[in-house]
Design a protein around this nucleic acid. Structure first.
Length: 542
RNA sequence: GCGCCCGUAGCUCAAUUGGAUAGAGCAUCAGCCUUCUAAGCUGAGGGUUAGUGGUUCGAGUCCACUCGGGCGUACCA
């Protein structure tokens, strides 16, 4: 529809050349009285043409060559909006399109042939995934789905570092617990990993090796075993949510393949570094950042900025058209440095989009559950998943703008009732399925022959809500978010439940009943498609 | 102190990226099942969008300042 309007506005440029100078936008008005689609073009032009927007709107309308089969009415309203009303033929065409495209309805070819990469989770293997990682994981995977829906081929990637200080502390923590098990007196430092899982890993080692490891270095078998077991569990936690990464990228490979030296050398050759206090500094000020930063410490070890830049360079050089990073808010101050670094080596940093994930607060009713990886009192993603189930986990994490703090209330997610939005949406799907089964006994068929009988307000509203789906996917993509898919599905489910109440099928005259069946089936398809983007199941019965 | 993010109904969140009367759910109150799942529907109350200025046809959205919260602000990642 937008394409159609764009094309007739394009034609009108010959009469109103100023139309070329504005960015033409169409949107669905909030209120039905304002039409099915609307544009503010006249208001944008009023400044340029120095004329009353309503007068300009009238000129625009006069110069549009409108197909009466598509648009039934055009009006000028408010300060100068031009509102368009669809014809019934066009509205029924939407149902036919849905029934025809089925599981492909809502997909677009807009970015067909383009490649995207989504990097998410990227937790180092020092402990089980927490609910915070869960939010990152769910939104990352769902956004990857959205990219696929607009046409991209997507690689899901996990970046990790199994060297460095954190991993040393991990090995030390496991060894201490091991020594504890074999009966040695230990004192366990506060800044070591406190979780029970450390004791479990130590116990596994004890079961397998007895006390023969007491003289082994913590950096060896203790660290390696911990890493393997933890990574195994992380992957399993993700799989339980339907998430599988295609690529696991080890930061260490950047060193092995010489990418770090290459990058550092590039910076040096291009005079972007200097030495101070025995460290190498990157001239970030020259690159538009507020402060220069150390990239190689006086110990010779690089800081995280260097591998991060090298890593992004490697990814960009793989040929992606779009790269998405999903970072925790603790990275929010540092990624601009990385972007500046990428730009400095001549790569297109505009291809990289960053989604900053804010924190998750877990409540159980009124009680706030505090979380820290180091301390023992956190909820793991597995615990959350076991408690509320995959569908609720995925729906709840997707439901909020990732850029806002969110409260995950366990007591609501656990409820199998109308307080829980995921059940409300799934129930609409199950309800339609149940109807489709029921009408078979009444010998009714889904038919698109008499869709023009669907004139009830609740029918029209449902159809127009269905039509909105394609745009919601696009808007989710453009807005770098998943939450509007949830809002949309909730709205769609509500529109269906209302229709279901006012527009019965059994006991209605056959032609109308069969048209309503077609509409119901179309609604079922769209709900299922939307849920599949979220990675939430569409149950046939509940 | 400085930087980034945030502040919307009692609570949890939306608001088509500057558009028309700021919307949903929960909670509260009042209704609806001899009819395809009441896991549903209908209605009511609840707002100076933290505050003050500014930008313009038009601001929850942009700018400045103030207040409040989160995260950074390391030669940790």
């Amino acid at each position: 529809m937008k394409n159609y309007l764009l094309s007739i506005f394009k034609e009108a440029e010959s009469e109103i050349p100023a139309l070329k100078e504005i960015s033409l936008a169409f949107e669905k008005p909030k209120v039905a009285e304002h039409g099915d689609i609307s544009t503010n073009a006249a208001m944008l032009l009023s400044k340029k043409l120095k004329n009353n927007p309503r007068v300009i709107a009238q000129q625009i309308v006069n110069s549009l060559k409108i197909d009466q089969k598509v648009i039934s009415k055009t009006e000028i309203a408010g300060p100068g909006f031009i509102n368009f009303f669809f014809t019934k033929e066009y509205v029924t065409y939407i149902i036919k399109k849905i029934l025809d495209k089925k599981e492909r309805f809502g997909k677009s070819e807009r970015y067909a042939g383009k490649k995207a990469n989504v990097e998410f989770v990227s937790a180092n293997p020092t402990g089980p995934l927490t609910v915070g990682h869960g939010r990152n994981a769910v939104v990352g995977d769902t956004f990857a789905n959205i990219l696929e829906w607009v046409g991209y081929t997507v690689d899901r990637e996990y970046y990790f570092n199994n060297a460095g200080r954190q991993m040393r502390v991990l090995g030390d923590s496991v060894k201490l617990r091991y020594l504890e098990i074999i009966g040695e007196q230990i004192s366990f430092p506060e800044d070591y990993y406190q979780g029970e899982y450390i004791k479990e890993i130590a116990m596994h080692l004890y079961i397998k090796y007895g006390d023969s490891l007491k003289n082994e270095s913590p950096e060896g078998i203790f660290k390696d075993t911990a890493e393997n077991e933890i990574f195994f569990d992380i992957k399993k936690s993700l799989e339980n949510l339907g998430i599988v990464h295609k690529i696991f990228f080890n930061e260490y490979s950047l060193y092995q393949e010489g990418k770090m030296d290459e990058l550092l050398n590039y910076f040096k050759v291009h005079n972007l570094t200097y030495e101070k206090d025995g460290a190498v500094w990157l001239k970030l000020k020259e690159l538009g950042q507020p402060e220069d930063k150390v990239i190689v410490k006086s110990t010779g070890e690089p800081t995280y900025r260097l591998p991060d830049i090298a890593y992004h360079a490697v990814k960009i050089n793989r040929g992606y058209d779009l790269l998405i990073d999903i970072f925790g808010s603790d990275h929010s101050a540092t990624y601009p440095d990385v972007m500046a670094g990428i730009k400095a080596i001549g790569l297109d940093s505009d291809k990289v989009k960053v989604m900053i994930q804010q924190f998750v607060t877990i409540t159980d009713g009124n009680e706030v559950v505090k979380m820290s990886t180091r301390k023992a009192n956190y909820i793991t993603l597995d615990e959350l998943n076991n408690e509320v189930g995959k569908d609720a986990v995925r729906y709840f994490f997707n439901m909020y703008n990732i850029n806002s703090h969110m409260v995950f209330d366990l007591s609501i997610a656990k409820k199998k009732s109308d307080e829980n939005p995921v059940f409300y949406v799934q129930y609409a799907h199950a309800r339609i399925n149940s109807i489709l089964n029921r009408v078979k006994e009444a010998h009714l068929e889904i038919s698109t022959n008499n869709l023009d009988l669907l004139v009830h307000d609740d029918e029209q509203n449902l159809i127009k809500t269905l039509f909105q789906f394609e745009e919601e996917v696009e808007l989710s993509f453009e807005g770098l978010g998943t939450h509007r898919i949830c809002s949309y599905l909730y709205e769609l489910a509500a529109a269906y439940h209302r229709f279901n109440k006012s527009c019965r099928i059994l006991g209605t005259e056959t032609k109308l009943a069969e048209a309503r069946l077609a509409l119901s089936y179309a609604a079922m398809i769209v709900i299922k498609n939307g849920l599949s983007i979220l990675g939430v199941s569409a149950p046939e019965e509940m």
